[in-house]
Design a protein around this nucleic acid. Structure first.
Lengths: 338, 338
DNA sequence: CTGAAAGCGCTTACAG
DNA sequence: CTGAAAGCGCTTACAG
């Protein structure tokens, strides 16, 4: 462990000032674009800075400026998940234009770590926090965040008032149900992923409620709701399809399950109508109808809420609901698919 | 723009010390786990801290500790791209266990912005930089990074010596070519995505070289290499397949093109053998052979190189090559697919 | 248009 | 085991 020789002491503002023959304050003015600096002075300072390879130290600046950084912390369930990845990507872009930088942390790594990650962000004096993960007791952050704004993305209501952006999963589920009911289906299976907590459960509830409202009597009979991997999703669908009186239509709470269903259909060489939440590559090629949301909009609204809260801490908490839509590719009306 | 009242001045170490009746230095010792603090003192300090809701200020700590943070900056082409997202996810996890936090920036936002992003990272005194983006002149960072280690992920060699992790695209291309040649194919189209710069070009070169070595005379005849969206990929494949003497096999440099090909096959109701780089969901269901790399390994090796460089700035630059493998699902041997 | 002094919240280097 | 002083690199608040 040698002490990096490359990482030699970086030049400071004081060194630049000295070389330029001005005071530290005057040099500071140049890098902050303050008015009232003679042009000749500006030039002298800039020349000295580039000779030394000076780069302002943001750490020092932030400490002096009131010890609150321009970092925004984001807690996600799993950055590798395309949903979170897209949210992070859009958020990063939106926040950057407002002068903030996104810093990410993934909570699913070890359960219960989320609180520690948030604590780390707060020690770093982040200007704000965006929470888009599935841990359950988020509201505690609010109490402990010491006035740092927290925005919740795609979380269920908890009674605690806070800024949040939600997906209208219930309405989406209703659209899917309407689609298969109109095609005449009556035996309709609902496959959920209990592991994916919040969102998936909302979708489950949306499906079953809408089915009941649609006059389907024995809804529970075809409901399966458990944690899923790609493999188990396939198996569950295969099992449901192999019953004595198999369903003629399937509703799925996520693309993993939808793809598992397609896989199962192929193995069984039988199929059913199918509509799932979340669009996926090749869904169009395969003609699968999906319920989808505009993830970019979710992220953009999240950024907007945060920036607005940052500008005015007093305003009442807002909730934004992102609508969903059905992309009808015909699979909800068919009785034979593969 | 009210001055957030929630963001009231956070309690400081000095306040904790005063409440606990000890010196600032002693209080500091408690939060840094230094030895030689009486147990009673530790307790007093901790009680005072929790009464006040004290949270150590990392900004101040980092400034004092030598103005180098525990942040690692990562520049990606596009965080929403599954490849970069997975890299970021793994990297974040690996670095966190070593006490570092990942901070991300996306360069594709506006071309040429990359340098500005890197500059911002350096002003923030990041401990290291990971560059995984397609901008071309990365080597310049090295000159300007003021001793901050830079690790390049999936970049082509530039002659500049630096720590880097590369994918063995050439070897992968060779495997794909061997697969279709062994199946007896002779008219083999190569579809590339010139827009995706580095990696895709390596793959193109790998394909054409291997074809020539395999005794295919008129290789160029079936080569198409231009920037692609999902739509243009489909159109290009359709055009190639509609020629007088159509190819009997297709090689693709990325999953976007592979999926475009599947789409085109469907529209034309004709098909060809097909092998593409990068695995994708449903590739298994559709029986498409792919050349794939272990992205997690890429990221893990990147983290390892960075941590090793951080520990010893003197060691010679290392290059790690991640091997690739063919997942043979049969599509390279078929003459009819869809 | 410019500068000298103080201080952001912490740790380092010393001294006891 | 504990503490008083100095200082990390910058900006704030004042004064000229």
């Amino acid at each position: 462990m040698s002490r990096s020789p490359g990482a030699q002491a970086a030049p400071t503002l004081a060194q630049v000032a000295k070389l330029a023959g001005v005071s530290v304050k005057t040099a500071s003015r140049v890098f902050n674009g303050e008015r009232y600096v003679a042009e000749a002075t500006t030039e002298k300072v800039q020349r000295a800075a580039s000779m030394l390879g000076f780069r302002p130290n943001r750490i020092a600046r932030e400490l002096r400026r009131g010890s609150r950084s321009t970092l925004i912390g984001m807690v996600t369930g799993d950055l590798a998940n395309p949903f979170y990845a897209r949210v992070a990507s859009v958020l990063e872009r939106e926040l950057r234009t407002a002068g903030y930088q996104l810093i990410t942390a993934t909570s699913e790594t070890d359960a219960g770590a989320e609180e520690r990650l948030v604590e780390e962000f707060l020690e770093r004096r982040v200007a704000g926090l965006v929470v888009a993960s599935s841990a359950s007791e988020h509201h505690r952050y609010l109490a402990n965040s010491a006035g740092v704004p927290v925005i919740f993305l795609d979380r269920p209501k908890t009674g605690v008032s806070a800024d949040m952006v939600m997906l209208d999963d219930r309405a989406g589920a209703r659209m899917a149900v309407r689609n298969v009911l109109q095609a005449g289906h009556r035996r309709i299976a609902v496959i959920g992923d209990r592991g994916q907590l919040a969102t998936h459960q909302e979708r489950m509830r949306g499906f079953t409620e809408a089915l009941r409202e649609g006059g389907i009597a024995d809804v529970e009979c075809y409901v399966r709701d458990e944690p899923h991997t790609a493999r188990t999703a396939k198996n569950v669908v295969a099992a449901v399809m192999s019953r004595g009186l198999p369903p003629t239509a399937l509703l799925s709470t996520g693309s993993l399950i939808t793809m598992g269903a397609i896989n199962a259909f192929q193995r069984l060489n039988r199929s059913a109508a199918l509509i799932g939440f979340d669009d996926f590559e090749l869904a169009e090629v395969l003609g699968i109808s999906v319920i989808t949301h505009d993830v970019s909009e979710l992220a953009r609204e999240g950024a907007r809420l945060l920036l607005s809260r940052l500008a005015d801490a007093e305003q009442p908490p807002q909730t934004v609901v992102i609508p969903c839509r059905l992309i009808d590719r015909g699979s909800g009306r068919r009785y034979e698919l593969v």
